[in-house]
């Protein structure tokens, strides 16, 4: 009979896997099990370690501190530092304005510079039409400014303002004599129609130095003011054509050299001339004398 109690040492060697070894081998041949073992357990371990580490507030603070420190030290490397402001393409006044606007405490890391807002600030200056803000070479903060080109002077009461082609104020003047080359406009809302005014000034070129300026009337139409207090009242529609007619009349009849106070062109079909009081009186006297004779 076969020995029912297993002997310690068998005469014939029958290598047989134990039940658990056999099961282990079968598990290791199961793809999902192997995947779990190879991927799932390391991932789970890592997850456990990370969560235990981060569940401690001290550790979290330490990590964030270290990160912030590393960030600052990187940002404050000399390669990234900006030392001074350089303004290009600006007059001394504008440069002063720009420097006033760009309030940056140098030296500063270029990471901490908000170039967008600097650009907005500089561009919002009246005297500046365009601005380019960049961190240039030699660790300079470079502001390249395109100043507004004044094309006219707008008088508001006693204040003389410079206007550019877009009707934007680009500065103030002490006296008219500072910029005798610029035409003068006045009146409420004159700056809004600066383009029209500039065109009219161009048309009025033949009148030469007699032109004093344009006055906006009722934010609607222009009066061309000449010396000797002469006025040419232009219509709101097509003022250029009306001005041309006057210039032609002037060339033909020397209209404006006469004692005329106002040339009213507001109604194109019915141009009217108003004489000065003296002229009118003189005319009346002459006509009365004629009547008397």
């Amino acid at each position: 009979m076969r020995a029912l109690i297993a002997k310690r040492k068998s005469t014939t060697r029958d290598p047989a896997p134990s039940k658990w070894r056999y099961r282990l081998q079968r598990w290791m041949l199961t793809p999902t099990f192997v995947a779990t073992l190879r991927l799932g357990i390391p991932l789970a371990l890592i997850a456990i370690i990370v969560t235990t580490f981060f569940s401690d507030p001290d550790n979290r603070a330490m990590i964030s501190d270290t990160l912030a420190e590393a960030k600052t030290s990187l940002q404050h490397r000399p390669e990234f530092m900006v030392h001074q402001l350089k303004v290009e393409g600006a007059t001394p006044q504008i440069e002063e304005q720009v420097r006033r606007v760009v309030q940056v405490a140098f030296p500063i890391s270029s990471f901490n510079l908000d170039l967008e807002s600097l650009k907005t600030n500089v561009s919002s200056l009246n005297t500046v039409s365009q601005a380019v803000v960049k961190v240039g070479e030699d660790s300079n903060l470079v502001v390249v400014v395109t100043p507004r080109e004044p094309v006219a002077i707008w008088r508001d009461g006693s204040v003389l303002n410079l206007l550019d082609t877009e009707g934007v104020f680009s500065g103030a003047l002490e006296t008219r004599a500072d910029r005798p080359d610029l035409p003068l406009i006045a009146g409420e809302g004159a700056f809004a129609s600066i383009q029209e005014a500039l065109r009219l000034f161009e048309r009025a070129e033949p009148l030469g130095p007699r032109v004093r300026g344009l006055v906006r009337i009722g934010e609607r139409r222009w009066d061309l003011v000449l010396d000797r207090d002469q006025r040419i009242q232009l219509p709101s529609d097509d003022p250029s054509a009306a001005l041309d007619r006057i210039i032609v009349l002037n060339a033909a009849h020397k209209l404006l050299e006469r004692d005329v106070a106002v040339v009213d062109m507001r109604n194109a079909a019915r141009p009217t001339v108003r004489l000065t009081t003296e002229a009118a009186n003189a005319l009346r006297r002459v006509s009365e004398r004629r009547v008397d004779q």
């Binding site: 029958d14 047989a16 896997p17 056999y22 081998q25 079968r26 041949l29 199961t30």
Partner: peptide, 24 residues
């Protein structure tokens, strides 16, 4: 005849064949 023994023998054979096939 002896179930334990037969089971062990079957396990041996199946394990070796599985190992060769590399599939469960």
């Amino acid at each position: 005849d002896a179930m334990q023994e037969t089971e062990r023998a079957i396990r041996t054979a199946v394990q070796a064949a599985q190992k060769m096939a590399n599939v469960r």
